Simulated scan of single mutants.
Amino acid sequence: MVRREICDVQRPIPGDRICTLYNLGLVPYETAWRWQQSLVQHKKAGLSSDVLMLLEHPPVYTLGQGADPSLIKFDPDQEGHSLYRIERGGEVTYHCPGQLVGYPVLDLKRFQLDLHWYLRQLEEVVIQTLSQWGLVGTRVAGLTGVWIDGYKVAAIGIKVSRWITMHGFALNVCSDLAGFQRIVPCGIVDKPVGSLHQFCPGIDVEQVRPVVATAFAQVFGVSLQEPMVDLATLLR
């Protein structure tokens, strides 16, 4: 069952674009994937505003559309791991509770028609979030994501169709990182995966959630609004 949690937006962040913020709890990967696909179709038809979903997933592995399956260290046919090949770019990654996932469904025609710009903006959301705890998030030339002291704490993978975005970013807050040992995360063999908990013991997703929302609003220049209806109702 999908658990929905509300994280109140105290007041809209100034901006000339509206973005509906769905604060969700633990959502099965396939459910969130289908929601994104439906939202993209709604936006292509001009039926919905921009959307940001913030949520967590039960343990699951995902492969980008061109990902190399040799980066998986287990046999998905013999072990009880959830695995999806999806339409985003990038290699294999892992989602689990304690990781805050952000799925923006945006019409980039209202922002910039530049995918590199969009990726850098998503990184900037994470970097600004980390700064609230005195952490310095950095980029690595030629790679996508955010690092702290050499540890990759945020992965980013997107799909854009007719300038409508889906998929997004995953920030390890207090995740059990053991699941990453069964893959070569994002195809990067020489940089370890980390979490904010390593640098800020005791931090949890509910502390980080509103900070990510505020950083997203500031970076993209949007006003966040609470939904009028839940996603399941909207997408019937």
Rank of each mutant, 00 (worst) to 15 (best):
G80S: 13
Q65R: 15
G66C: 10
T31V: 12
P97K: 04
N23M: 04
S49H: 12
G134N: 08
R17K: 15
W147A: 03
T138A: 13
P69G: 06
I148C: 13
P28L: 01
S70T: 13
D107G: 06
A155F: 12
Y29L: 01
G46W: 02
Q99L: 08
A45N: 09
L63K: 02
G137S: 06
L55A: 03
L130I: 06
V146P: 14
P76C: 01
V92R: 00
G142S: 02
T62Q: 01
V60W: 03
D75E: 12
T93Y: 11
T129N: 12
Q37R: 15
P69A: 10
V40C: 02
Y94M: 04
D77R: 13
L115P: 04
L130T: 03
C19T: 13
L130C: 10
V101S: 05
D16H: 15
V140K: 15
D107V: 08
G46Q: 01
E123K: 15
E79V: 14
Q41I: 02
T144G: 10
F74K: 12
F111Q: 11
Q128L: 12
C96D: 08
L24F: 03
Q112R: 15
E123S: 12
R110Y: 04
D114I: 07
K73M: 08
T144D: 06
F111H: 15
G89S: 07
V146K: 14
S70H: 13
H81V: 06
Y61Q: 04
F111R: 04
V101D: 09
C19G: 03
L113E: 14
K73Q: 09
D149V: 02
N23T: 15
S70W: 07
Y118N: 08
L108A: 06
G89F: 06
V27E: 00
G89R: 09
G64H: 01
G46K: 06
I156P: 07
L21S: 09
G102T: 00
G145S: 11
L54Y: 13
D114L: 07
G64S: 01
I86M: 08
I148M: 09
M53E: 01
L63A: 09
R85L: 04
V153F: 10
K44P: 00
F74L: 10
G89T: 07
P28C: 01
G134K: 14
V92H: 00
D68G: 10
L83W: 01
W35Q: 06
W117V: 05
L122S: 10
G145K: 14
S48L: 05
H116E: 06
L71G: 08
I72V: 14
D50Q: 03
A141Y: 10
G80R: 15
A155Q: 14
L108R: 14
G89C: 04
R88A: 11
P59N: 05
E79K: 15
Q121R: 15
G89V: 06
Y84C: 09
I156C: 07
S49N: 14
V92Q: 04
Q36T: 03
Q65H: 15
V27A: 00
Q99H: 10
G137Q: 13
